[in-house]
Amino acid sequence: MYWNSKDVSVFLEQKEFVDTAVIPLLLIDGQASQLKQNASSAEFLMALTAFIENQFKGRVVLMPPITYTKKSNYQQLAEEWTETLSEMGFKHLFFVSSDMAWGTEASELNVIYTPSIPLENMDQKLRQSVLDDQLRQIIPVFANRWAKNGQ
């Protein structure tokens, strides 16, 4: 499900089934030399999380990305969002990012790290299969965490 009014009304009715939030974490670096790279990895992250949404549509809500800069306080972002999303009733939170800093700065978030693959020069078919491969690696992460923390 997406964070739009139609899907959110389903979420409100089906809270026992829709218990997971997927949150893309998106770094905007700001340095001129990094802009292209930034944009490309944003593109990748949004495409990948849309794939995740499609696979697990009935159980997850894909949130709009949390966009931050190098100066943001990672620790604080992590706490704020965990708190807010838990209050909303989500039992499982999956943060997805291609910014490696999350592993060291806020490791308790358990961010799913995915290396960013430049999609811009790929045709539709290749794109599809690259994203598919990534999705296939992420599915078990979801399955395990769901199994561990109970249905």
Partner: peptide, 27 residues
């Protein structure tokens, strides 16, 4: 497309039921 809430089902997606389609979201 799963008829419950729309996840994607997989053939033999659950080791316990190798000859069925399985939806990973709510089994």
């Amino acid at each position: 497309v799963c008829k419950h809430l729309g996840c994607t089902v997989n053939w033999a997606g659950s080791p316990d039921h190798p000859d069925q389609f399985f939806c990973p979201c709510h089994a």
